[in-house]
Design a protein around this nucleic acid. Structure first.
Length: 472
RNA sequence: GGCGCCUUGGCGGAGUGGCUACGCAGCGGCCUGCAAAGCCGUUUACACCGGUUCGACUCCGGUAGGCGCCUCCA
């Protein structure tokens, strides 16, 4: 088990995970008022892979990524579309599950919905009201920001400078800093839940506080994450609510991913410069999308464009080509190492063994160091180049294990898909015959025919073979 | 205006006080019947100006430019 360190937004420092305790991770998922875009996929991928890595290191890990399915935007979008808000939310939630599912990373351990956490939300608000941290006003309930000393400690901004603009009905608030915990039902809203303050619905921030403790248990849990655009006010407000109510910190580490940018501007629905996840998956495939999303450090902004996705496709092809050339990808590394030992005389095996194992170890070290996926991938590519230069026992097994850790394990499983059909194999045999007769014109015609069928011919010292043509 | 972050070779993108990141693209070569795959080489990368240092792309200060949040946003 490695020591895993993560940069904490609140302190700005690297913080180590406690190996003795369960690592609870809560990451803010999307508000489901439209189909998710590439930017929404980034935290899903980062936190899914982080949880996967931690589990592989032996940390007992539980990842919760919520769905916010009650929100002003949902009411607005539903009204515009002429459908019920619950219907729209359910549709978009299903689409979110489908789109992120296609990434091939599995599901988080928990994916709570705000609409299914109402009881816990009401209980949490009631506690805040009882303790004097919140007050009812005209059917709404507001959090009293000045009742909480630590306000602003996450986003590092002085309270005097801020304003909560989310609710512009202003008059109901005692202080402009206050924000809504509960919103009384308003004209035109087609859903509401009962509460001690009358029918209404949760405000934007409270659902995360409630879902996080419901899923991860006693506070503080290890990591709270999400996009950097949530630092203020969303996460600041979560901290205020949870810590005021429970008297304990909400999370030990605050971990934020940078924004995806197009033309150096953040991709966002309001900017209109979005690229939907489903379209990216359609055009470039899940491996390329994942490869793209881990190509930069999670904390930094990441440039987006067709060129970047095409590069990701090329990277993935390189890895796949390499794995196809290996016959040890299905083995575990130790066995692959042993089989390499003594392949050509004693002595050389041991040193060679340490190359693959060493690379895997360095790969894991990079992930343990603030989840540095680009550095990890550079180690993977180093191994690929080296093993293409010379015999490196266990390289295929080591690379397969690396890729599995970052959600690209399917590249090593390529052998599982259907091989070339009989027709293609027949053509390949004909081409070999033509080449033997040095009738290269005919051989090339057959190669073109195979290309049309979607198969690429690769000649090697061991004879010709077929691989699926890229982009097929 | 406030808070925070950033500026690396054609592009994307890591990192370090002194040693080739890595990937993609281009060019040249090797291999190949020709390709593909792969390998090698390649255009002296670190915004600018000062400072600290034996030595800075890496630390400090300033200048210029950019981004994020401060309103819904992953």
């Amino acid at each position: 088990m490695r020591e895993v360190r993560i940069r904490d937004t609140m302190s700005g420092e690297l913080r180590s995970l406690d190996p003795g305790r369960e690592v609870g991770i809560y990451a803010c998922g999307p508000t489901v008022y439209s189909r998710v875009h590439i930017g929404n996929a980034r935290p899903f991928v980062i936190f899914s892979l982080l949880a996967r890595f931690l589990k592989s290191e032996g940390y007992e890990t539980r990842l919760a990524i919520n769905v916010t399915d009650i929100n002003d935007k949902i009411y607005a979008a539903a009204a515009e579309a002429g459908v019920g808000s619950a219907t729209l939310a359910a549709e978009m939630t299903a689409a979110y599950f489908e789109d992120t599912g296609r990434l091939g990373l599995g599901r988080p351990d928990a994916e709570p919905l705000a609409s299914e956490t109402i009881d816990a939300i009401v209980e949490l608000i009631a506690t805040l009201v009882e303790d004097g941290h919140a007050y009812e006003s005209g059917g709404d309930v507001y959090f009293s920001v000045r009742s909480f000393d630590g306000y602003g400690k996450l986003s590092h901004r002085p309270t005097e400078e801020m304003e909560q603009g989310e609710d512009d009905s202003g008059s109901l608030k005692r202080d402009r800093l206050d924000f809504a915990l509960w919103k009384g039902r308003k004209e035109g809203e087609d859903s509401s839940w009962d509460s001690p303050w009358g029918p209404g619905r949760p405000g934007w921030h409270i659902e995360c506080s409630a879902m996080a403790e419901a899923e991860l248990g006693e506070l503080p849990f290890a990591i709270h994450g999400g996009g950097s655009d949530l630092v203020f006010p969303h996460h600041e407000n979560e901290i205020a609510q949870s810590e005021a109510a429970r008297g304990r910190p909400l999370a030990k580490i605050w971990m934020h991913n940078g924004m995806i940018e197009t033309d150096a501007a953040k991709m966002s629905k309001s900017e209109g410069n979005i690229f939907q996840l489903s379209e990216a998956l359609d055009r470039f495939g899940p491996e390329a999308v994942v490869s793209y999303l881990i190509s930069g450090h999670y904390r930094q902004p990441l440039a987006f464009g067709a060129e970047q996705l095409n590069e990701a496709v090329a990277r993935v092809d390189r890895l796949r080509n390499f794995l196809r050339s290996r016959d040890d990808t299905g083995q575990d590394l130790e066995r692959a190492d042993r089989s390499g030992t003594g392949a050509d005389g004693a002595g050389t095996g041991l040193a060679a063994t340490s190359v693959a194992a060493g690379a895997l170890s360095e790969f894991r070290d990079a992930l343990a160091d603030d989840f540095n996926t680009p550095r990890a991938m550079s180690i993977a590519f180093d191994l690929v180049r080296r093993a293409n230069q010379e015999e490196v026992p266990g390289a295929g097994a080591a690379l397969a294990e690396m890729l599995e850790l970052v959600g690209l394990g399917s590249l090593a499983a390529a052998g599982d898909d259907d091989g070339p059909p009989a027709e293609a194999l027949e053509l390949l045999g004909q081409r070999e015959a033509a080449r033997a007769e040095r009738d290269f014109a005919r051989a090339d015609r057959i190669r073109d025919r195979l290309d049309e069928l979607g198969w690429e011919v690769r000649d090697s010292a061991d004879g010709a073979s077929l691989v699926p043509r890229p982009g097929r």
